[in-house]
Design a protein around this nucleic acid. Structure first.
Lengths: 188, 188
DNA sequence: AATTAAATAGACAAATCTGTCTATTTAATT
DNA sequence: AATTAAATAGACAGATTTGTCTATTTAATT
């Protein structure tokens, strides 16, 4: 079963949209630039996506799925729940480095287009909630020091992750995320 | 000494730009909407600001100053450094409520326009650094429990603040910031 | 009161934006 | 091989964008 012709076009569009929407921003990226860099015709884009907003939604949905799969894959490298928690912070630092400290794609999308379409906000909320739930599960399995409750530790880790990525986008480095990792080592 | 005519115009422009750039976003706000809602002429805007980017920079500079003054005023309500630290989290929750959970103005500006002009990123970095320094000073005065070092506690508080505001913008509520406050009470 | 500076309304240019449409070519399927 | 569906290039509409410019009115200053 080889790839359908249509799927190749869709993939090229979504790949390009993902790259441009993230690096330049949704508003700063025109449809014409997307079709130019994706090397497809405008008619093809509007055959598969009703509007630019729909393209944004589709990008976020696909990104949400791939993003979560990457995190799951990353923490699967160790069995220890404590190490898995540390890996989440480590991973976010690595990703921000790859992304040249452009910040969280979900937060970016939310800031620019979160209020314009309910599907956008919903997708972002679901993604963030999944991360929270993942942390919660790992915390409950971690047998941590009980310096705080499971709920509080979960919250702390989530906030340090979110804050660390934001700090990375401001200061263009990942030392806040690295610091968060060291702090977490003391807390668990 | 009453207000100069020019200053009134500048204030109206900056007030409107601040409101629209935050609620709608920089890209989603046109110069024409700014002059319409500020109720001034287009020529007046371009007399005081060379470009839309310059207006953004001026908005951020004024906002940075006022923002920091508000925080200083807020924490001046108590003498206890521990309570001052808690007040920072409390204050950010209140502000996000007022802002209808639109997130951090600096992070928003950075995501949308941080790479387009070095002055924008510089202003945002300075603002965030000031917050970090403020927390650092308060931590050093707080005589906290020493569950972690001063540096680590400072980092934790900063990250929880940054992450809490981001979470507020995603989930449209301030309970993450409230949770952060309760966690901080345990840490100090 | 006369002069100077600033604010105004609004036309305008030039570029860009999203989205539509047509005519043609390419590829997959029967 | 014939048919059907999809991708292409590109023109086009209509709206919107930033920024400029002119002519006029308003306000402050000498």
């Amino acid at each position: 079963m080889t790839k359908q012709r249509g799927q190749i076009v869709i993939d090229k569009i979504l790949d390009t949209a993902e790259r441009l929407f993230y690096t330049q921003g949704y508003c700063n990226t025109g449809i014409n630039q997307v079709i130019d860099e994706a090397d497809i015709a405008k008619g093809s884009l509007y055959k598969h996506f009703e509007s630019k907003t729909d393209l944004m939604v589709a990008y976020l949905q696909r990104f949400h799925q791939r993003w979560y799969e990457r995190i799951e894959q990353e923490i699967s490298k160790t069995e220890d729940p404590k190490k898995k928690l540390l890996a989440i912070l480590e991973y976010h630092g690595q990703r921000q480095h790859i992304r040249e400290f452009g910040g969280c794609p979900f937060i970016k999308a939310n800031n620019e287009a979160g209020m314009s379409d309910p599907r956008i906000l919903a997708e972002i909320q679901q993604a963030k909630q999944r991360l929270k739930n993942l942390i919660k599960t790992l915390v409950s399995q971690s047998n941590h020091k009980k310096l705080m409750t499971d709920k509080e530790l979960t919250e702390t880790i989530y906030l340090m992750t979110e804050g660390g990525v934001a700090a990375a986008s401001v200061f263009k480095q990942d030392k806040d995320l690295q610091a968060a990792k060291k702090i977490l080592q003391k807390l668990i």
